[in-house]
Design a protein around this nucleic acid. Structure first.
Lengths: 215, 215
DNA sequence: CGACGGGTTGATCCAATTCAATAATCGTGG
DNA sequence: CCACGATTATTGAATTGGATCAACCCGTCG
């Protein structure tokens, strides 16, 4: 399935683009022209607010399609920043829309992808709005694991590519709180941690640490 | 503009549906068949989690299009509940997709609406992830006001149709905290409150209470 | 009229933030 | 390749914002 879709997308790719670790792919306010598929690497999306606050609102791993935020106003509303050297495939939006008109399957696929993003966002709201610190971290680890799995990567032994501060920003916590939650999970034998490398030892235990994650 | 679009949508409407205050339009797990436009009334979307937690993830006022959450999996992922007696226009999704293929403007419109939803969701994440209680409430009031304005309703004198508990659920706060924040704003002369009726007196002051809302 | 749901306000408590000190790791240039 | 400065992570102690527990008010509806 993934292969078929990739094949279809291939025809729509204008260019590939390399983004170096730490560099932005696009910034809030940039003119919106394209959607992107992550080829290799890892990116984060952030919303900034006047007042210096910043919230990480999502991350994008290899194979994922993103960049919807600019369609409405014609300008991007978030920043997308590479967390490691990353290659993205550029899909010019105009070309995509034109193609979608004659390829119903492609249209459906795009809608499904946007729909999935919306569902994921709402699940994150549940995390942000109603969970305590350890529950949030457990939910985050499980969801990350899921997404790696869905894309065919190792799912209980992986590299967070986010710093503690970034995880904190994503989960609405301070970095110290994130660090303490990690320590607790290690102490309880749920995970092993070595800096950014995490191995999930007891997934059931993690799940239990999140009374309330849907699915 | 709104008129033109409404006209286009009219052809796609299968039925109208009345939902009584407190009743669900759809529930998580229901088979996804249609998108909806709010005719008159007001609805909320909620995500529930095993463990009895519930988070309000959005609300929908007259004129707004919603229901994307089911496209991906074919089943709705949230509950949509009427907060007052509500009439919704039912747009069967299959028909919509077919029509969109031959009407590029309609397709663009749909994408823009989904895009706007995603942007709004991310802004709510910023609220949930980084603001303190009073900032959250101020941001909520301003955003509600904006949306009423965008739809042509009075925007500094309106009825919240949400209870304090529901506002709390939306903002990740307890109802007591919401109530206290309201009292504070009244004391500071920013708003007048009479139960669910709110009049914004000092919008600039409210905006200042949210150092950090984008826009 | 009494009961009940929704709202306000006060007192106490606790989880997470903040402040602070230390340790581990990374990256860079010599 | 190593050394050194700069990030990044861990852990502890003190503080605080919001949750929780509780009392009370008000309007509405049977």
């Amino acid at each position: 399935m993934a292969a078929r879709q990739t094949e279809q997308f291939d025809k729509l790719i204008a260019t590939r683009k390399i983004v170096k670790r730490g560099d932005p792919l696009f910034r809030s306010g940039d003119r919106f022209k394209s959607l992107y598929v992550v080829g290799t690497g890892f990116l984060k999306s952030t919303v900034a607010s006047t007042g210096g606050r910043e919230q990480i609102t999502g991350y994008h791993i290899a194979g994922e399609l993103f960049g919807w935020d600019g369609i409405n106003s014609g300008r991007h509303m978030f920043d997308a920043v590479a967390l490691e050297d990353t290659e993205v495939l550029v899909l010019p939006y105009g070309r995509l829309e034109a193609a979608a008109s004659v390829m119903p399957m492609l249209l459906t696929h795009i809608h499904k992808t946007m729909s999935r993003e919306i569902v994921r966002d709402h699940q994150l709201m549940l995390v942000l709005g109603s969970m305590r610190a350890e529950e949030r971290l457990a939910a985050f680890l499980l969801s990350l694991s899921q997404r790696f799995k869905a894309r065919g990567y190792a799912h209980n032994d992986f590299n967070l590519r986010l710093s503690r501060a970034e995880i904190g920003s994503f989960l609405g916590l301070q970095l110290e709180t994130v660090s303490r939650a990690f320590s607790r999970f290690v102490r309880d034998g749920l995970i092993e941690v070595n800096q950014k490398h995490v191995r999930i030892i007891n997934a059931a235990g993690l799940r239990q640490a999140v009374i309330g994650v849907p699915g």
